[in-house]
Design a protein around this nucleic acid. Structure first.
Lengths: 361, 361
DNA sequence: CTGAAAGCGCTTACAG
DNA sequence: CTGAAAGCGCTTACAG
């Protein structure tokens, strides 16, 4: 008893087309999928009818028979409040989405509280065949998602991973290079004491940055302290004041994201310290925010959209390889992307180290 | 020839369970869905096996037979750059997502360039049965999505719509009330000339705000100009300087979002005008950014997550009604939400109007 | 070159 | 209370 849910135009199936064309459903399927085994006139006739009635494949049916969901999953373990002021995720999402959409692959998004919930989402999606693969962000130093993805044999790409992690594909997020660029910029301006207000040390990319910072400082004969935070502006303000009160006060402070840098700027001002004359400030993440505040913030910029697109493309390839046969997607382009190059955007918040300036003056 | 894609643990089907339990697939289905017609022991045995093997329904199969996708669509017509500094969307998304996830409904997200692309996405999703319904944001005064959704009979909820629009369900975003609160706050501080740097006038919510602003100003015997922008901080800075140079310069400026307010703050400072002593500044959207800048920004705050959740819940109900039978989702809660109340958060950027202060001093 | 049939994994009337 | 069967809309070997 095929009940029609609600009114509205009927959405045609291959059976409808087959009937109108006077052929079998199989022939319609062959025509629609460009497979051989049909006379040219028949093929044309079928395609014309499909076009006319506005046929589109029922994805559930196709997924069921192709054993492929036509979707990828991204679970974000970030509370909404935090998400709302992080410029990284929307851009990443946008890049991922653009790449997947170009191949008619859907993005399954879930925003959860913690990694455990994310792990559960991965398991469920995979068990229900809701996704063909998954993207992992914010990799932790010890991350429960990695063994789970491996055990499930779930095609997975780690975004911003620190390096080869077991069997999963990873896409490093240039953290080391970007750290080095910032440190080099500052030491080049004569800074010898560069502190950092960092994100949580549980994240692999935080560690990655810390390591690169340390190395770059050492190479330049400079020093620097570190305070870990939860990425919140409140924590950044507290950390900033703490650093400024130390006996070995810094002449520059680097913040792991833009919102912390802005909060730091406010805290510095409240201490009556001039930026950049007495203290330089820089952000590890660039955003419109860095342009807008006064003084505008020197920040590490890179093409996050392109990065997301590359990662998504890699995932799609991985899935294709696993399936051993290509293209559920009709007419996907063989997307080739150059690797994005991070570049420091120097703005008003960084300047000569106080002593160095005195010397150069 | 059932080919297994890749290695990894086998994902069991009801056929596997039926075999192990020594019953038919139909019985397994009944047990799993809590339908009557099975002895208690049989039911228990089946459920125990399902639990043991970690069975989860294949969503494609279920969708195909239930004629229901188990997913809702949200297409965002916003360039990535813009998305990345708008605090509204991540919060809205988070609220929507939380509500849908609690009912095991997936969110299909697509970020597109313009409304036309969004309209195409709606058509395609519906034609492919990828979604059971859709959420529309950023409604325009003349919006091509509305007639299309109506014509398709696509269950649709308009988020932040201005009022009843044809047959579609809408959720007003408190724009009028929030406008009024800001104006009342400022006129209460003695301001008699309150300008506004607004978003694009093509949006229905911009018009909504404009209308409410005008009314509230008139009620208080105050006046105000308006400059339309594209929401960008650059445009906000230009608009601010333009307003400040007018012969009838304002004593307060309201910005339609937080990032424009911050940019405005910078522009005001560059003109050598003190905030809030000489000019008050307020934002129509609250975010962490408003807390973090100096002076911190008075802003209109409301529970965007709850709003998103309410809208998503309404959509699910709408879909359920259309399907005339409930719950593809197992065990959905009958979510009840109080309507969120907007409230102005008064911070450092607004104060007495210069003249009023002189009088009160 | 074309049609009939089986199968993807589930649900649901319909017989026993 | 239980099983066998048909169907959701597609794909794909397999006969003709």
């Amino acid at each position: 008893m095929p009940r029609r849910p609600g009114p509205g135009p009927r959405r045609p199936t291959i059976a409808d087309i087959a009937e109108r064309a006077g052929v079998s459903k199989g022939s319609v399927s062959y025509a629609l999928n460009g497979k051989p085994g049909l006379s040219e006139p028949t093929r044309r006739r079928i395609l014309a009818i499909a076009e006319e009635v506005g046929w589109r494949p029922n994805r559930a049916a196709r997924a069921l028979s192709a054993r492929r969901a036509g979707a990828c999953g991204l679970a974000l373990a970030r509370p909404a409040r935090l998400l709302s002021y992080d410029p990284f995720f929307p851009r990443l999402l946008s890049g991922i989405e653009a790449e997947l959409a170009s191949r008619q692959i859907a993005l399954m998004l879930q925003i959860v509280e913690d990694v455990e919930a994310e792990t559960r989402a991965l398991r469920r999606w995979w068990a229900e065949r809701r996704v063909d693969g998954a993207l992992l962000v914010d990799l932790r130093v010890v991350d429960p998602r990695v063994p789970v993805a491996e055990q499930l044999a779930l095609p997975t790409v780690i975004i911003g991973g620190p390096g080869p992690t077991g069997k999963l594909l990873y896409f490093p997020g240039h953290d080391a290079e970007r750290s080095r660029q910032i440190v080099d910029h500052l030491t080049g301006l004569g800074h010898r004491r560069i502190d950092r207000v960092a994100g949580p040390s549980v994240f692999a990319h935080t560690q990655e940055r810390t390591k690169a910072f340390r190395e770059a400082l050492a190479e330049a004969g400079a020093k620097g302290g570190l305070v870990s935070t939860d990425y919140s502006p409140q924590a950044a303000a507290v950390a900033t004041k703490k650093l400024l009160k130390r006996s070995s006060a810094p002449s520059a402070i680097v913040y792991d994201n833009d919102i912390m840098a802005v909060a730091g700027l406010g805290a510095v001002r409240e201490e009556g310290i001039a930026v950049p004359e007495e203290l330089s400030v820089a952000s590890m993440e660039d955003s419109i925010l860095c342009e807008v505040v006064r003084p505008s913030l020197t920040a590490s910029a890179w093409d996050v959209e392109a990065f997301g697109a590359r990662a998504a493309h890699a995932l799609v390839q991985l899935i294709d390889e696993r399936m051993e046969h290509h293209s559920l997607a009709d007419g996907a382009e063989p997307g080739r992307y150059p690797e994005e190059k991070p570049a420091l955007v120097v703005r008003g918040s960084t300047g000569w180290a106080p002593r160095a300036r005195a010397v150069s003056a």
